[in-house]
Design a protein around this nucleic acid. Structure first.
Lengths: 246, 246
DNA sequence: CGGGATCTTGAGCAGGTTCAAATGCTGTGG
DNA sequence: CCACAGCATTTGAACCTGCTCAAGATCCCG
């Protein structure tokens, strides 16, 4: 085997610090639409209903009656769907500030399953509270539409990836997408911790765990990234972007 | 090569007859929610704005400002997304009664591109009309959420297929899904015409055109279906179902 | 009736999977 | 605080599904 360039040491990642509720998706959107004088009753409800899920714990299952939607304050969550013979397709990884469970609003049943990837604090918004306010406050309806619509966009991107991209393009796309989302939340876009396993990444990207490893290794050999287990540093975003190809 | 069982002759398909506007998705949902006494002004607008697209004509492009949503009265349409280097992933085939373009409601830009697969008549609902009524009529908001949410469900099913199923499972899933949708619209669930090419099917299912052909042939040899070009008859739905695997 | 598009089939190839095994973390209980 | 069990990651080697390339058959439209 070729001698591999020693991996540059990766710096310490930011700690997942407790964040103020300003980072919570629901709050942010309320505020954006309504200005600083937004009616704060919903917000109070949200802030009061904190809840913590430990790694591996289930937020909800497919088909369960909709009880609440969740805004992530800190941590990360995967959601996934299942074939009836038990195969799993992870449909999304969700990080701080993102909102889960809204898809269930129409059928009153969750359409996917959600599980914490690490210790995760969420704001639990009971559905009756949300509905009461959405009836009164147009901005909340707006924001619900926005979240649903973002989900459709994300899904389209994933379908494109699953249907038309090869292994390298998939991983590059994945890393850049994570990077962009971290940046949006004011974390470092070039250096972060993955909270999901190689196996989860492979499942999400439609490739085997082993292939994920090999591509990680190759990217590192090529000087595109530095990795050490779940710590990743992007060294050449431009080249990654040209590999990812839209 | 093994001598192939002669394909049972496929019966004539139903003609795509002009349908009354009762089959149109918007109408149906209005009526469902509001009962027969629904305010008919929106409906009148819809009925007046008929439009015909010929095979290959474009309804809208990605990024174009949202002008209208479309309810298909007769015919079929494909929608798709693109990589920035020009690769295409078809994200859905739409038939009579289904509604397109609603995803654009939030950003006011279409998120995908839509093209007629055959001569297709649609009801064009200008977006300002739709928005005016959705502000007034709660049932229209309901129904918009329902359509978006159905789109998310469909996308999840496709992601599962693209990420976790093999060629046989993909084609079986595809045929059964079409069958179900035709049935819902009161067409024969066991006998129909495909309006899309093998190449489009392959693109949608994430496989090569040639592979689609080969699986069609094998399914026919196994007595699961009868095909002749774009005419398909499902002969053994049970076995197809067990192949499709959820 | 001609020509382009669509569909079908064959043969060889390749990217990615599967199976197997070694190594390295992590966190848990004593 | 350490040992150990169990899980995650990495790497290798063989294999296989589905792709690519190529050519022929068939259809459809003007």
């Amino acid at each position: 085997m070729m001698p591999r360039r020693p991996a540059p040491r990766v710096a310490e990642p930011e700690v997942c610090s407790p964040v103020t509720c300003k980072d919570c998706g629901i709050y942010g959107l309320c505020r954006e639409v309504n200005g600083p004088d937004v009616d704060l009753r919903l917000l109070e409800t949200i802030v009061r209903n904190r809840k913590v899920f430990k790694r591996g714990e289930l937020l909800y299952r497919i088909g369960e009656p909709l009880r609440a939607v969740y805004a992530i304050r800190c941590g990360s969550i995967k959601s996934y769907v299942l074939t009836n013979d038990g195969r799993v397709q992870i449909t999304g990884f969700h990080i701080t500030g993102e909102v889960l469970g809204l898809g269930a609003i129409v059928t009153n049943q969750y359409m996917s399953e959600a599980r914490a990837l690490e210790t995760t604090m969420v704001c639990e918004v009971p559905i009756d509270v949300l509905e009461a306010y959405s009836a009164e406050v147009p901005s909340i309806r707006q924001q619900m539409l926005k979240i649903l619509s973002q989900e459709i966009l994300d899904n389209q991107e994933l379908m494109l990836l699953l249907g038309k991209k090869n292994a390298d393009e998939r991983l590059a796309t994945f890393l850049l997408s994570l990077s962009r989302r971290f940046q949006k939340r004011s974390y470092s876009p070039s250096q972060f911790n993955l909270s999901m396993s190689r196996s989860d990444i492979g499942n999400y990207l439609g490739m085997a765990e082993e292939t994920v490893c090999r591509v990680f290794t190759r990217f590192q050999d090529d000087g595109l990234i530095a990795t050490e287990r779940r710590r990743v540093q992007l060294l050449d975003q431009d080249r990654l972007t040209s590999i990812a190809r839209g």
